[in-house]
Design a binder for these strands. Structure first.
Lengths: 199, 199
DNA sequence: GGTGCACGTTAGCGATGACTAACATCCGTG
DNA sequence: CACGGATGTTAGTCATCGCTAACGTGCACC
């Protein structure tokens, strides 16, 4: 039905990625329980139970999706922090990386902070752990910049900034990404600066 | 089974409110489609189909919930803006009102910006309209303060600030509300100030 | 003190959805 | 060329869920 394929391995990888991408879009729009497996299949041109050739179930699909996002975010944070000359540059790089992700993968970002509750216990713990580590990267950098600010306050501020950055899907059409990026960066920096003042 | 009641009207009101409240909590935690009607009933001490004595269906329950939130937010914004002496005070009052709502009704805020897609077409349009009007209250105030800033940028900044303020449920236990309130206020103000600079 | 309405119950129906079974097809490989 | 694995199909099973039906029961009111 489709065009010729290069190699089975190649194809399998693509199909899996395709499915994850389509599922992310659908989950973001209608919620995990609002999307039948049939629809996910349809979105990639196969129908229904074909998905079980690639994932052991709907839960596994969601788990893999969130685990992937969490570890990518966390990894990028570690990389960025270890390669920056100082905390100021670290913070800017963390912001830039998160904004890039939020602008390029709005569906993943959306699912990432909505559907954790639908992930089976075991994987949920892993994901939570990765999320916590990601937050701690931010908190560590902020603590270097403002040692006198209590960690709890830094954590709360970090969560608030995530909320700001992840709001991208809501203001979809307002501004082009090219303008959105510096706007978000400036707003987030200003918010963080305000957060650590006069505590 | 329960204790004596004062009047039927009184009771009916309470039961409806009780149901809406419990449903909000459940929807926020597991998503609209993830919550069976049975569970909503159980959360208020009745079981299953008793809800149909108060709402015409699950959809209607969600619709009423979101319509209520949207109109309350919008109304509070109108009140606040018309009673403030100037735009500066308006902005602070808008922030204060939104923060109060987000801190006191985290479940409602969560459902409000997640489940719109599950509301039937007709009501969805009403809700969208109210949301748009709410945003426009903010944009109008911001435009008075910074007339040279393009409206699209103000709208995007407003959405971003909503994301920041509505992130409350994510940082639940980090800080007490008493500390959270001024923190969010300061961060949001700073973010807005940064947003309207050098466009 | 009967009557009607508000409010609840349990049983069951019809639809849907996750998943399995059984079978087909393509394609690289010995 | 036979074989086997990867990948797909359709049909069917079983559980769940929204909702309706039929049936109590207490309380306000004439």
């Amino acid at each position: 039905m489709t065009t010729a394929s290069a190699s089975p391995t190649r194809n399998r990888r693509n199909r899996r990625a395709e499915i994850l991408e389509a599922a992310a879009r659908l989950f973001a729009a209608r919620g995990f329980h609002g999307v039948p497996i049939e629809d996910i299949g349809a979105a990639v041109g196969v129908s229904g139970p074909a998905l079980y050739r690639h994932f052991s179930g709907k839960d596994a699909l969601l788990s893999e999706m969130l685990l992937d996002v969490s570890s990518r975010l966390r990894e990028s944070a570690v990389t960025v922090v270890t390669t920056s000359p100082g905390p100021e540059e670290s913070l800017d790089a963390l912001l830039a990386a998160h904004i890039t992700f939020a602008l390029e993968q709005p569906a993943l970002i959306t699912v990432h902070d909505r559907e954790l509750g639908n992930v089976p216990e075991r994987e949920r713990r892993q994901i939570r752990r990765l999320q916590r580590l990601y937050v701690e990267e931010w908190v560590t950098v902020l603590a270097e910049l403002h040692p006198s600010c209590p960690a709890a306050r830094l954590r709360a501020a970090t969560h608030a900034v995530f909320g700001l950055l992840n709001s991208t899907p809501h203001s979809a059409g307002e501004l082009p990404a090219q303008r959105m990026r510096p706007l978000l960066h400036a707003m987030a920096r200003a918010a963080l600066t305000a957060a650590v003042k006069d505590h």
